[in-house]
Design a binder for these strands. Structure first.
Length: 568
RNA sequence: UGGGCGAUCGUUCAAUGGUAGGACAGUGCCCUUUGGAGGCACUUAUCCAGGUUCGAAUCCUGGUCGCCCAGCCA
């Protein structure tokens, strides 16, 4: 692949064991002169999450690297859980990550072929129709330490099996009454080889094939063959499928079809995060979050709405790599890569979340001026903008303390600080309400310090941000914290539930934030750094006259750390 | 106690028989018109026991520990 980003080493595909393995296969021409072919094979039964992002970057990234192609294939063999809504969201998410598939495929497109192959196995005496109930089959399967025993129906003749299987397809039998099984080895130490089910009867409407079928292939009887049909050379999946590989190969060998190769890697786990479709679905259905795209969700649609970027996700999954060891990655690692990306790219703006009025007594009433501000100090090319300054400003409540604790550098009585990009200001007096709360601070500014520096070389310990009262844009800001309060949300006492680990304070809505006026034109999805506060992005809930911002991530807060330490 | 897979700083990834290194987190200092960013420094690891070898994280043997598998889910 020709690369246009040699200057960003972290964007290079990682040198991991998958890479080595494929490189070796290319060297030895394991697949002849065929190009590398991979696939990303989600079941359309839920939204994609950050764990899938790892698989996507691996599937598409590795193929790219070796000049190969990647198909997006929906593993839609279970009509009862799959929906078109998911098919659509998955395509949206893959594209958002920056990938375009070679072919869009569906396992359901292969139903006719799969059926033919089942017939072949029956004719070869390698498959049989079993009348045992699900419960009986489970009992006959044996246990981890004891071999199973053969079903009494295992010796049916080819003719009888053919007849029964065709009638299964024709809809003559009820759900669960019969199943087509592969005839392998009921004593195999690998449970997957103890005559696994190939087809089950399900009278359900499939999201694509409708009611054309009432028998559906199992994952094991569909996946390898689908890979083979698409001439997938390297079929990457997660570790829990390692036990299925012998069966994957068995079907391919019995059928004599293209020998796709399955390779397993470790699933991504993150602290304070749940990556189980079943539980994510539960969070949505029970209303613990606002939907699949709630910014607290680990779904790609959720973190996208939260303000995360594909670039950061790529850097993250690259750093995390692929191995065969199961672990849990610290969520702070993901956050680091996101801050790193946004720090370089996000335009800066000034916004006050919890406003406190600051009146500059010696600034002429009615006067206003524009100060020039860099859009991104990390990137001169981002240019500058003009921000209005006037006698009355909003500052952050946290930036003023009547009695400052040790090491507090911000505004307090008699103290001088810098108003970002504007003037030095000194707090002089304050106004309190009946309850004794500070409602207004009065101060004086040094006109000679315009732009933020005093000609006499005087230093201040701190710089605070501000928004002109007369020009302020009111807005709603949604502050997010971790959805779970426990590093392992799945760790709960007997009789409990992962829901007990939900963080009740994961969402805080600030309804009266004050923004600098330039933000009036911000479009949904646009990302900013509110200086000294954090990274934010415009939520699609925003209307023309009321902006809503989501906090992607707070800035690192050294002061909070100092305060915390002092408190302990 | 059947089978499969694995074990390197607190976490994560690397080292492919030859100086155990990077990133995240943490700590301290420097710098800073964001207590952001940046810079410097520090702390901390080869699961255990044997063996092969001039030399082992790496190869071998035996343990130990962890994960996965008994769906007509994927």
């Amino acid at each position: 692949m020709t690369t246009s980003h040699t200057e960003s080493p972290e964007l290079h595909a990682p040198s991991n064991f998958l890479h080595e393995m494929i490189a070796e296969d290319v060297r030895t021409k394991k697949f002849g002169d065929a190009a590398i072919q991979t696939r990303f094979p989600p079941e359309p039964n839920g939204y994609l999450h950050i764990g899938h992002a790892k698989a996507i970057f691996l599937d598409f990234g590795l193929a790219d690297e070796f000049g190969g192609k990647t198909n997006l294939r929906f593993d839609d063999t279970n009509p009862e859980r799959e929906e078109t809504e998911y098919v659509e969201s998955i395509q949206r998410d893959v594209r958002w990550l920056g990938f375009e598939w070679e072919k869009l495929c569906y396992a359901s497109d292969y139903f006719p072929q799969l059926y033919e192959w089942a017939l072949k196995l029956i004719k070869d005496g390698k498959a049989y129709v079993d009348d045992l109930s699900a419960e009986e089959i489970r009992q006959y399967r044996g246990t981890l330490t004891e071999p199973g025993k053969e079903s009494p129906y295992r010796k049916r003749t080819v003719e009888e099996n053919l007849d029964l299987f065709q009638r299964m397809k024709a809809g003559e039998f009820a759900d669960g009454s019969r199943v087509l099984r592969a005839k392998i080895d009921m004593a195999s130490p690998n449970l997957n080889l103890r005559d696994p089910a190939m087809y089950r009867i399900v009278h359900a409407t499939h999201h694509r094939t409708g009611d054309a079928w009432c028998i559906y292939p199992m994952y094991d009887f569909a996946h390898g063959q689908s890979d083979s049909i698409e001439r997938v050379t390297h079929s990457m999946c997660t570790l829990e499928f390692a036990d299925h590989q012998p069966l994957y190969r068995w079907y391919i060998e019995q059928l004599g079809i293209f020998p796709s190769q399955q390779i397993e890697f470790d699933r991504l786990n993150l602290t304070y995060t749940l990556l189980s479709k079943r539980r994510l679905l539960q969070l949505v259905q029970e209303g613990h979050v606002r939907g699949w795209d709630d910014p607290r969700m680990p779904t790609l649609s959720g973190i996208r709405r939260r303000g995360f970027t594909p670039e950061a996700i790529r850097a993250f999954v690259t750093s995390v790599g692929a191995t065969r060891t199961n672990g849990i990655v610290d969520i702070e690692m993901l956050e680091h890569f996101q801050r790193d990306d946004l720090n370089r790219r996000a335009a800066r703006a000034m916004a006050v979340l919890r406003p406190l009025k600051l009146v500059i007594d010696n600034y002429p009433e009615g006067r206003e001026e524009l100060v020039e501000v860099a859009n991104n100090p990390e990137d001169a090319a981002a240019g500058t903008r003009q921000v209005p300054f006037s006698r009355e400003l909003y500052i952050e409540q946290d930036d003023y303390r009547e009695t400052p604790p040790p090491k507090y550098y911000r505004l307090s009585p008699g103290k001088e600080v810098r108003l970002r990009n504007a003037y030095f200001v000194t707090a002089q007096s304050l106004v309190k309400d009946a309850a004794g709360n500070v409602v207004e601070v009065h101060g004086t500014y040094d006109p000679a310090s315009r732009g933020g520096n005093s000609p006499d070389g005087r230093k201040v310990k701190s710089t605070i941000h501000w928004v002109s009262v007369a020009h302020a844009l009111p807005a709603e800001v949604r502050l997010y914290e971790k959805l779970f309060s426990k590093a392992d949300p799945g760790d709960f006492p007997e009789g409990g539930s992962f829901l007990d680990n939900l963080n009740r304070e994961s969402l805080e809505i600030v309804s009266d934030a004050k923004l600098e006026p330039s933000l009036a034109g911000a479009r949904p999805g646009e990302r900013f750094q509110f200086e000294r506060v954090g990274y934010f992005c415009v939520d699609p809930d925003s209307s023309e006259n009321r902006k809503i911002f989501n906090r992607t991530l707070a800035l690192k807060d050294t002061w909070a750390k100092i305060e915390k330490k002092a408190a302990s």
